[in-house]
Computed example of a mutant assay.
Amino acid sequence: MTRVRADDYGDKKQSILDRAATLFARKGFELTTMVDVATACGTSKSHLYHYFPGKEDLLFEIVREHIAGQAVELSEIVALPLPAEERFQRYVNAFVMRAAHSRDEHLVLMNDLKFLPAARRKQVRKLETQLVDLMIGLLKEINPALMLPDKVQAPYAMLLFGMIIWTFTWYQKSGAIAPAELAARISHLFVHGFKNGDFPAAG
């Protein structure tokens, strides 16, 4: 007989993912055990296996859910009937906001993807490629001449992603610069450059 899932199955599953992401981000995937996750969730290891067959499955779902959510949100932004630079700013803002409010998941994606088997890494990399392609399209609209050589397109997009992604190894949203301001400064710096930049003062 097929086992009927409880009404709160989805909520409990998400709670496990959230707590596992926190542990993986702080302790590292290799050093975290399923017992650690069960303890953090206030449950037993056998109960965890009802939701996830193993630790690798937890890791995969954390990173897949995180980046799949980004892909949907950013695709919708790029499709908006707005000027390219405004869509670029919204894209960066959305990326920064997700990284700031899901910092544990962001760090797990950065640091622990290598622990997944090749087939699962490939699934995640495919989603990451979607994000890069979306950014390349925006940069082509903003400055077609600069993006004309094929060889520079991915590097320009990856320079931007590198700026954002690695920032969250040290950035704390509770600091002096709020996520929205950080996103605005990143957008302005990337589009206008440092030497010629003149970031508008807060009104």
Rank of each mutant, 00 (worst) to 15 (best):
Q123Y: 00
D18T: 07
V37H: 08
I77P: 00
P144W: 06
T2M: 10
L109Q: 08
L31V: 04
L131M: 10
G10D: 09
S187M: 01
R103G: 01
A176V: 15
E86T: 09
T39E: 15
D57S: 13
K126L: 14
V132H: 00
M110D: 14
F52T: 09
A68H: 09
F29P: 01
A145E: 15
D104L: 02
E65L: 03
M158K: 14
Y9I: 06
F168D: 02
G193Y: 12
T167M: 09
F52Q: 12
D133T: 10
K140M: 12
E85T: 09
H106S: 13
G197K: 01
V108K: 05
T32L: 06
W170P: 01
F29V: 04
S187W: 00
H101W: 12
L139F: 08
K126F: 14
V72R: 15
H50D: 09
S75W: 02
R103Q: 13
S44C: 02
V124F: 11
A21C: 03
T33S: 13
A157T: 08
G197P: 08
I165F: 07
A94N: 07
P83C: 02
F161G: 06
L131N: 11
V92N: 00
M135T: 04
S44M: 00
Q172W: 11
A180G: 05
V72H: 13
G197D: 12
A118L: 15
I186K: 10
I186T: 07
L17E: 08
G28V: 04
L134C: 05
I165Y: 08
R3F: 09
R98P: 00
L182H: 15
N111M: 15
D36V: 04
A71P: 03
A176K: 15
A183H: 04
L160S: 04
R3P: 03
S102G: 06
A119N: 12
T33A: 06
V4F: 01
P200L: 11
E65A: 11
V152M: 14
M135Y: 03
H66V: 02
K27S: 13
I16A: 00
P179G: 09
S187L: 03
L159K: 06
I16G: 02
L113K: 14
H192F: 07
R87D: 07
A100G: 04
L160V: 08
Q70E: 11
V78K: 13
T167Q: 10
R26Y: 15
A71T: 11
